[in-house]
Amino acid sequence: MDRGSYFEHDGRPAVRFERTYQHSAERVWAAITEPGELAHWFPSAVRMEQRAGGTIEFTDDPNTGPTSGTVLTFEPPRRLAYTWGGDELHFELEPTGDDSCTLTLINVLETSDTAARNAAGWTVCLAELGKHFSDEVADGPHSSTAVPWRPLYDDYVAQGMPSGAPVPGEAGHGSVNTDG
């Protein structure tokens, strides 16, 4: 399974993922912006005002309560960014052929100790997106058919990715965190 990497993004801690899909940028754009598509792989239900400066709302995540953020960038079908709590999510799409596209996901972190936790969560989420694009059952990162989160987290920690943030489902928190 493709791993995420830890780095600094404009002086802030971040994790980065890159995946190439055999789909057009427009198709991948739909997967990262349309609520019905996001339901297959994203850790929360999402409602977004599709414009820079718009509001984005996150609900139905078993690990967090409802929250909202701000759309920072909305440039179909290439760039999308928004705030989520103290984090930012940046999506960039680069066509690599007529029917293929590379998705880069950068999760700019509020604190570095969330890196391993979030990297494991995004690895689960992106595995679900890959299943969705392959026409396999993709019931989302919280489903029983999703890749298990804990071994991924343990691997990221063993590889030296910053860790230590609370993990929902442990030490008095909610269920195991699969969000990014």
Rank of each mutant, 00 (worst) to 15 (best):
W149Q: 13
N107P: 04
A39Y: 02
E75D: 15
V147S: 05
A115L: 03
P35I: 06
A45V: 12
C125Q: 02
G172V: 13
R12P: 01
I106S: 07
G140K: 12
G54I: 03
W149D: 04
S44R: 04
T104L: 00
S143P: 06
P162N: 10
N177S: 09
D10F: 03
G174F: 01
W84N: 08
E18F: 06
R150K: 15
E110G: 05
H40D: 08
T102L: 13
V28D: 00
V108W: 01
A116H: 08
E18S: 15
V124A: 13
A14V: 06
S100A: 15
K131Y: 08
A25H: 00
A138Y: 02
E8P: 01
V46W: 00
A31R: 02
H173K: 05
R3L: 14
A119F: 07
N107K: 03
F133V: 11
T114M: 12
A165R: 08
T145S: 15
F7S: 14
S112W: 12
Y82W: 06
L109S: 12
Q159K: 13
T20V: 04
V71H: 03
K131D: 05
V157T: 14
T67P: 01
N107A: 10
N63F: 00
A52V: 05
D61V: 09
T59F: 02
M48C: 13
R12H: 15
Y153P: 02
H90R: 15
H40V: 03
P141H: 07
G174R: 12
M1N: 07
W41H: 01
G140L: 08
T123K: 07
V157G: 07
D154F: 10
W149K: 07
L129W: 08
G121D: 09
Y6S: 05
S112K: 13
T111V: 14
H132D: 09
S68T: 11
V46H: 02
T102F: 02
A25Y: 00
T178E: 04
N118E: 01
G160E: 04
R3T: 10
A30W: 00
R117W: 04
M1V: 12
H23R: 13
D10W: 04
F74C: 10
G169P: 08
A39Q: 15
P62H: 08
S134V: 05
F58H: 13
T111L: 11
P162Q: 13
E34Y: 10
P168R: 11
P76N: 10
P35S: 15
V176C: 04
S100Q: 08
L38R: 04
H9N: 12
G121Y: 03
D10Y: 01
A115T: 04
W29D: 00
G160S: 07
P62A: 12
S175T: 15
V124L: 14
G130H: 04
S100I: 05
L38S: 01
P141L: 04
F91M: 02
E88D: 12
P168V: 02
L93M: 10
P168I: 10
V124G: 06
A116Y: 02
P148W: 09
S68Y: 02
